[in-house]
């Protein structure tokens, strides 16, 4: 279990992070979500001890059990991927034999087999990002910290990286992101951060429940029709969409209410608030 208590970082008069507390259960995946400048990178760099916290306490695994991927990973450009990974694996405590096996495995996982003997200086941004993930995973860390792991990637690269994260079994993952669609696919828990403070946290389901839970959505062709329909019952109107609480109405009841308006309705069904909806709500 990873525990962070009242973590604070001041840069002169600027407060980057203030009294951040959270707990990460073993082998869970948590998304640290927030706008640019919210303090996500500062939190991760304090957890990796690259930055010293002004105050607060952390209970973390020892450094050799932590893997870290910065947003823009930098490497020694004169080395090739294989040499680099062999070096970091051994510096993380693996023997030479273990390092050979581990580097071959991660090179395969991040799909760099063809380029593993090329100098890193010739790598594209996406290849560097994949090498960054490889170096973070090579020593099989129990805690993996990722800072915007997919922000520099194209859609295929993003999908591949999210699959890698999704398939991690015995690792606790904390990853900072503002690409919410991807986060939603792999995350168990969310931490919303804004202006250096945690605004919301919990499991994905808990947070979704808090911000409306499962809802019934009726989409009309026109805004007027939607407003007319909404006036009949407690509901929320968003343009042509009318949202009704799923705890108040069943689908059966909804169909009965909607039947007289069927020619005005485009579609209807279940809807859950997305991370993006919650992100926008928290940010208000």
């Amino acid at each position: 279990m990873i525990k962070v208590e009242n973590l604070t970082k001041h840069y002169g008069h600027h407060i980057a992070v203030q009294n951040v507390s959270f707990t990460l259960e073993k082998n869970t995946k948590t998304a640290l979500i927030g706008p640019n400048g919210a303090g996500k990178t500062t939190i991760l760099s304090m957890l990796t001890q690259l930055t010293t916290a002004t105050s607060g306490r952390c209970w973390l695994p020892p450094p050799k059990e932590i893997g870290f991927l910065p947003q823009y990973p930098k490497f020694y450009s004169w080395l090739n991927a294989e040499e680099y990974l062999m070096m970091v694996a051994q510096l993380s405590g693996l023997t030479k034999k273990q390092a050979i096996l581990a580097s071959a495995k991660v090179i395969e996982v991040v799909d760099l087999i063809k380029d593993s003997k090329r100098k890193i200086e010739g790598y594209s941004g996406g290849m560097k990002q994949r090498l960054g993930i490889a170096q973070a995973l090579i020593h099989q860390p129990t805690l993996l910290l990722l800072d915007e792991p997919v922000s520099a990637l194209d859609p295929i690269g993003r999908r591949d990286v999210m699959n890698i994260i999704h398939n991690l079994q015995d690792t606790t993952v904390l990853y900072a992101t503002h690409i919410l669609h991807d986060a939603e696919q792999v995350t168990d828990n969310v931490l919303f951060i804004q202006d250096g403070q945690i605004k919301e946290q919990g499991s994905l389901q808990e947070v979704k429940q808090k911000y409306g839970g499962k809802q019934l959505e009726v989409v009309f062709y026109t805004v007027q029709d939607a407003m007319q329909f909404a006036a009949q019952m407690p509901s929320k109107v968003e343009g042509e969409r009318v949202l009704l609480s799923a705890t108040r109405y069943t689908m059966h009841q909804l169909l009965a209410i909607a039947a007289p308006h069927s020619e005005k309705i485009k579609r209807l069904g279940w809807k859950e608030p997305s991370l993006e909806d919650i992100f926008l709500e928290v940010g208000k």
Partner: peptide, 13 residues
Amino acid sequence: EQGAVALLYIRPI
């Protein structure tokens, strides 16, 4: 300044 050493600083060296 170039940042390459960050990935070594986080290791137990």
